[in-house]
Write a protein that binds this DNA or RNA. Sequence first.
DNA 1: AGAAGTTATGCAACCGTTTGCATAATTATT
DNA 2: AATAATTATGCAAACGGTTGCATAACTTCT
Lengths: 339, 339
Amino acid sequence: MSSTIRDVAAFSGVSPSTVSRVINNKGVISQKTQQKIYEAMQKLDYHPNSLAQSFAKGKAGAVLMVMDASYTLEYANTYFLQTMFAMETVFQEHGYSLVISSSREEGENSGILQIVYSKRADGLILPPATVNAKLLDSLEKAKIPFVVLGQPELGHQPYSWVDIDNAMGASQAVDHLIEQGYSRIAMVAGDQKAVFMQKRLAGYYEALERHELEQHKNFVIEYSDDTDAYRAEIAHLLANKRAPDAFICGDNVMAFHTLQAVKASGRRIPQDIGILTFDNYPLAEYTEPPLTAVEVDTFLMGQHAARILMDQISKSGSGEVVSLLPTSLNVRESTIKRG
Amino acid sequence: MSSTIRDVAAFSGVSPSTVSRVINNKGVISQKTQQKIYEAMQKLDYHPNSLAQSFAKGKAGAVLMVMDASYTLEYANTYFLQTMFAMETVFQEHGYSLVISSSREEGENSGILQIVYSKRADGLILPPATVNAKLLDSLEKAKIPFVVLGQPELGHQPYSWVDIDNAMGASQAVDHLIEQGYSRIAMVAGDQKAVFMQKRLAGYYEALERHELEQHKNFVIEYSDDTDAYRAEIAHLLANKRAPDAFICGDNVMAFHTLQAVKASGRRIPQDIGILTFDNYPLAEYTEPPLTAVEVDTFLMGQHAARILMDQISKSGSGEVVSLLPTSLNVRESTIKRG
DNA sequence: AGAAGTTATGCAACCGTTTGCATAATTATT
DNA sequence: AATAATTATGCAAACGGTTGCATAACTTCT
């Protein structure tokens, strides 16, 4: 068996409490005793049993991160993994470990609740999709702090969340396109049920206004999964005499298909048409030409969320913190009209 | 405070031990008592404190999965995340939770050892890069079972590992190309320091022999990160009168650049030249034309590894299990020479 | 009805740490 | 040198379960 705190105590001729205090840096212990105890720990190859510590302290020493399997396992996961990595780094610095669980059953967060009830986590990182009244209620009762990774719907109950500033991203995108000399900017908007897509569109509108550009209603394009139909739509739009000369696309896949459609119609990118995408997965870098992208700093996002959570755990509670992180533009060939 | 096992015992008029036995399905308990106890648990909203359980049983109830940050955070991570998801599913079924830690410091696995020593995990899932003599030694002493995700070097100490059968993948690839009418098959081999790359090359050779095709030494191409140099090399190769008519590429990035190089040289894909890649990240699907790919069933891999580990944990020890999982071919446009 | 066998429950020690309170040891004060 | 103030340590009871062993409560059998 491995040695316990009592073994160390006996070996160094002190009481277990003293050893405990040394381990936890609590109270005042004389230099001599400390010395003795450290030596004993060395000799006996002692390592605190973290399970026992957690149990005694009533703190799990762990944070649960929930992954929304249906969403996260899509190709979009570069995002999740980097965020996770960033969070793990922060947690580790604070002595917490990171537990992963995936929410499978739609709406029913039984797995999460199980962990909350059984006190296996001191805090939670949640994807927006898992948040519902029942869960919020349980968390409230159990006094478990949590941070949501992604901007929630308007009018949600108050809680902490972190997201990138999608509106700012779109705004930056428009600025850049205009600076490059594009002036008839269209937006492939994606599913407007998702908050982040709404924000992207809103940022686009805001920027147009700021630049005093007219808003053509047919410049906001609804993406369709039916590739052929979508290509036809773009072709039709481009045939128009007042066609757009740039597209901001809501995500990489849309951008890819838009790119194909534009090329198919015979226009050159970036000379005739500029294309710019949100999200910066490898896909964006490897198209022809490579796509300019509104970049999401997933590392920063994870770090931020983790820090907020650590804060709430240590201060046990505290108010709701909301963070919109800045985006940046990764400029590539697809929008370089002028040098 | 939440209720404890003693509260439930008092409420239902039995002893804590009986309640415990009901919770754990241990021993024989009369229908009546069971009934009473279940009701009491309901009424008191009792949930076992999993920390206390773990502590009392001396079992963490958790598995640690280590992510090799330097490697995993590359674009290659679709792999990691799906594997992780698959494993989490298995662990959850067995009542274990999944803890993630990333190995940062090269060679020094202090984080892992910390968790092992402090008894926070009953088993480990490790990337090959973290495995070294010191770690093996510690795990041996602590009697912690582990499974390595990826084939180790030849002559490694015996332990359990899981990987896909990379040689088989290459073999399938050659078969497919030949079936499609390609006959001068080249291989872009990638860094031969990695075992999986060695295997891919070995499978290629094996298949050539099986088909009694000649092995041209200049058909095995060393990939270079210098894009321009690489394109020139491919162009030069293709200019040769005895040029290859198909390329099997060791990974998606190599495949992408090979594709570009071939196109730049004026050859049509798949009519003139076939291109096939290992690994099936989104990148492979979105090239022009889409790439045929040797697919890695990451879900199966995770599931498999997790099951092996669960097995070793429950049987506490057992021998080394080695698994080579079958690959499959995802046929796309880039190799469809005949209908 | 009493013995023997079976089934169901309780007792109490234990898992390894932490921590409030009491007290011993040391140092400062006069 | 005695007393007060301060600093360093020990005691013992938690924390919430689990489990080997003993025993009580039923059944079954003769």
